[in-house]
Design a protein around this nucleic acid. Structure first.
Lengths: 347, 347
DNA sequence: TTGTAAGCGTTATCAA
DNA sequence: TTGATAACGCTTACAA
């Protein structure tokens, strides 16, 4: 007599009983069909169908010491950048037997460490973590992890295992070069949140303006606050209060850029004729804003998809020929940075 | 001798061995401290610390027939509305021993049903599902679920168990009344995605304009495509191609509204003087757009938080005095719908 | 307050 | 190709 705890639950043994075989044979018929004779296999499949047997992932996990869960650690659920990465990750596991478990580190290295311990104690099939700035301990935990690990969002010299991302430094450097090439001389930088990736973008900007002899610390405004459109408005106000002598603004992301655009509209500052404007990430709205806003396109969904692909390949025992993938970025020049050009052309 | 599968893993039995007690006592010391004598409890805690014992959730789940996982089924990971709900859900489980497992139904009732089966087979501690339009089967599955269930995002007459949301019909009705009260006569409706919630908003709009004798089917444009800012631009173009005789637009969400604003700017259509504009959800950017855009504020994070609270209360065996919570909405009138007023005042 | 015994549903191991 | 047995680490039920 079955205990009432397992009320109604159909088990491998139940199927086996009906099929007159042992539970393990049913298990094999489902997991490794080639190990069971075709005739028996078919019979078992029918009975499974008929009884409505559903494998129990918890029991499987305990017995086999592994799960079908890929752990994902990201610093934010609301930041649309990470929402896009998540979408890519979802697309990646789609159709596979694997599922995804997220952890929100809230930009905290310590919280990341804590979550990592929790995740690792749960025998993940794979681990995807954001960035390359883990704590020493986290890094050690990841190195010891008995599953594939992918670091996403950035490129770095010492991958824990696998890596897919792009250089935020280079991306910001190139965007700034674009502004300089367009004739802008007084290029401000607006940065929010200032997580490691934002920091690197600031470094890229700094290097570019320094090389061009255009560096001015007074043109850099940063805040630890999370970026929003409203913050973009405010940072522009702060900037204008500080100095009127700017002719371009590089925003560390598109939310800020949109806010800057709105605030410019309100202040009757012409974009791009008086101020050039460049965002980062190339959110969908950038291309249809008025004017369309120059941005740096990043491949966020692709990043998630590739990370999952790499994990799955490794799990499948396949060789991953390219364990470090640089997805690059693409500068999307639009009207918002054509001010100097137009002026020169006498527009 | 321990098998090598459990390499290095510290178990309850290990702790018990060192403490000279049985495994079950250690288990109790950790889960129900009041059942173990203070002295022993403290000794056990020390040894746990010292040995670095971490409870194994998989084994616990198998033995106790329940997990600490709250399943969440949402139709989209990218839609910022659901991203906000997720944030609320995260905030809700924060600090509790519970974790969250998401499933993305991609607006498909069938996919929802499939995921529901998967989730239910995993003994969730609770279930949070979106909307009230589950399939018959899903509904039956939910009714049978041996865990608390919360439907979020909407209000409806027959909750499966608990419910927290608001009436999309009422919200849209009130927003449309606001436009009518402002003197607008030819009010268009722009709708994307057309999921059940959007449909109900369309119904609310329809009722309001019909009551006012302002209904005109030609003013309604809908598309199954997902809403984006770019789509807002395009729908405005479609609308203008169809008729010039409109003086206000109610967009079924803020993305569309923003696109409409940009497109109006491009076409030199003055908002609000020529066309009034109202969005839905009141995303952060609405308040800082140029002009600020009227919208209907919805309490998305709050919805997630409350849903989790209700689940946790029920798990804790507490009575949930209010199993159906209507979070309402708030009309946020802004400059974008003051056109007719201003005209009347001769502005 | 503590312990014993018996599972939970599956898979690994070894044997037939 | 199939099966018997023993885990996996924990908790429930019952006993002391």
């Amino acid at each position: 007599m079955k205990s009432d705890r397992s009320a109604g639950k159909v088990t491998l043994a139940d199927v086996g009983r009906v099929a007159n075989v042992s539970a393990i044979t049913v298990s094999r018929a489902l997991r490794k069909p080639e190990m069971v004779s075709p005739k028996l296999r078919q019979r078992i499949e029918e009975i499974v169908e008929q009884l409505g047997y559903v494998p129990d992932p918890v029991a499987r996990a305990l017995a086999s010491d592994r799960t079908d869960v890929i752990g994902v650690l990201i610093p934010s659920v609301t930041n649309s950048v990470f929402a896009d990465v998540l979408r890519g990750i979802y697309a990646g596991v789609e159709g596979s037997p694997f599922s995804v478990q997220f952890g929100n580190t809230r930009y905290s290295v310590l919280e990341e460490e804590r979550l990592l311990r929790v995740f690792l104690s749960q025998r993940p099939a794979g681990l995807i973590v954001s960035g390359i700035d883990q704590s020493e301990t986290s890094r050690a935990l990841l190195m010891q992890a008995r599953c594939p690990v992918v670091q996403i969002m950035e490129m770095g010299p010492a991958p824990v295992d696998m890596m897919v991302g792009f250089s935020h430094f280079d991306a910001a450097y190139d965007a700034t070069r674009h502004l300089i090439a367009g004739g802008y001389q007084r290029i401000a930088f607006l940065g929010a949140r200032m997580d490691p990736r934002t920091q690197r973008r600031l470094e890229g900007y700094t290097q570019a303006v320094k090389e061009a002899g255009l560096f001015d610390e007074g043109l850099i405004i940063t805040t630890p606050r999370a970026s929003t459109v409203g913050l973009g408005c405010q940072l522009l106000s702060d900037l204008m209060a500080r100095t009127q002598k700017i002719d371009a603004i590089f925003c560390n992301n598109d939310d800020l850029a949109l806010g800057v655009l709105f605030e410019c509209q309100r202040r009757r500052i012409a974009v791009p004729d008086e101020i050039g404007l460049c965002g980062f990430n190339d959110l969908e709205m950038m291309a249809v804003a008025n004017p369309p806003i120059t941005s740096v396109r990043t491949f966020r969904q692709e990043m998630g998809r590739r990370a999952v692909e790499m994990v799955l390949a490794r799990i499948a025992g396949k060789d991953v020929p390219q364990p470090v993938v640089d997805l690059r970025y693409e500068l999307m020049p639009r009207l918002s940075t054509r001010g100097q050009e137009r002026l020169r052309r006498g527009a």
